[in-house]
Amino acid sequence: MLELGRWREAIAELGTVVADHPGDVEALCLLARCYSLAGDPASTVATAERVLAVAPRHEWALRQRAVALAALKHRRAAAESARAAIVAAPTEWRAHAALAEVQVQRLGAWSVLSARLAADAALRLAPEEADAHLVDARVRLRTGELTAARRACLRALELDPGNQVALHNLAVVELTRERPDRAARGFTEVLAGRPDDRLVGTAHRRVVHAMLWRLFDVFAAATLLHVALFTVLAGPWRRPVALATALALLAGLTLVGVRAWRAQPAPVRWRLRSDRLRPAVMLWPAMVAAAALTLLLSAYRPAPGGVAERMWWAALLVTLVGFGARLVELLGRRVLILLVRLSFRATLGLYRAGVALRRRRVPAAAARARG
Rank of each mutant, 00 (worst) to 15 (best):
A266S: 04
L295A: 03
L107T: 13
V102A: 00
A183G: 09
V87G: 07
V321S: 00
R269C: 11
Q264F: 02
A122C: 09
A82K: 07
E92M: 01
T91W: 08
G252P: 00
V218F: 07
A299S: 03
V104H: 00
R194H: 06
V112A: 13
T202K: 03
A242C: 07
E178F: 06
A100P: 00
A46E: 05
A183T: 06
P56Q: 02
A292C: 04
F219R: 05
A71M: 10
A79P: 12
R63D: 11
V87R: 14
L277D: 10
Y351A: 06
V256I: 11
L123P: 02
L30Y: 00
L154W: 02
Y351S: 02
M211G: 02
L348Y: 12
R273I: 12
L297H: 05
R239E: 11
A303K: 09
R259P: 15
A228G: 09
A222T: 03
L296K: 02
W270R: 10
N169M: 14
V218W: 14
R142M: 03
P240S: 13
V173F: 11
L191S: 07
P302N: 13
R259V: 15
G108R: 08
E189G: 00
V45Q: 02
A77T: 05
L146M: 10
H168Q: 04
A38T: 02
H168C: 05
E329F: 14
I11V: 14
R151W: 08
E128F: 13
H133V: 02
V318L: 12
R326G: 09
L295R: 01
R334V: 04
H58S: 08
L134Q: 12
V307G: 05
L69N: 01
L342S: 07
M1A: 14
R198G: 04
V190F: 01
W7K: 09
G193D: 05
R334G: 02
M1I: 08
L330D: 05
R179A: 15
V268Q: 00
H58V: 03
D20R: 06
P161M: 00
S343H: 13
D120R: 12
V54W: 04
R269Q: 11
L331G: 11
T319E: 03
R273V: 10
A251I: 04
P267N: 00
L317A: 15
